[in-house]
Amino acid sequence: MESDLEHGKIMDQAGKNIDQAYKIVRKTYQEINAMKDDFAEVLREIDPSIEFSEEYSYGPKSLYLKDWHVFLFRRAVGEEEGEKPTEEFLVALIIIFSPWAHIKKISSTNGPEIWICKIETKNIKEKATLWEVSLCLGIDERKNFDKKLEIGGTISNYHWKDDKGEEEWIGQFIGYPLTAIKDKAFIKKEIIDKLLIENYQKK
């Protein structure tokens, strides 16, 4: 049996580990939320009608690291007149820490990755859900991309139409290692400018 003194020393080391883990999780979520705010600001500069809509983690922000985390921004066309929207403009940030169900990381590196997408939906019956947007990255959806998804700033085009040829989703996806997202300038230049500036028209 170890003495109480030895036990105490071991517990001190355990406490240090816990503290380090705590700080890393907390810092990660602080940065994720702060990054979302910077995205919101850059999007707002382009078109104030693109508004933050929802996020996947509705629980406490600080310490609840899920396998993936999503923020969705939305501009629903027609909604401002009180009508049911038939088309939407969506921007999503999808952060993948580890594989979950059909959503797998694209790269083989250990680190978490972030995918940012712009999607325009047409002839929709219901507003797109955060889940549906996230599942575009699912393995079953890979066939709907024009080329293999690659991490590091390459844009891949996504296209889907329902069986009746009515509802349609047209999107562009761009992905980076999460650690590549360094500041607001990077968000603007390497993500938003690439995804949105070209061919973007305010509705």
Partner: peptide, 9 residues
């Protein structure tokens, strides 16, 4: 706090 990136990871 402002966004300072994920370098720490």
């Amino acid at each position: 706090i402002p966004f300072t990136g994920f370098d720490f990871l």
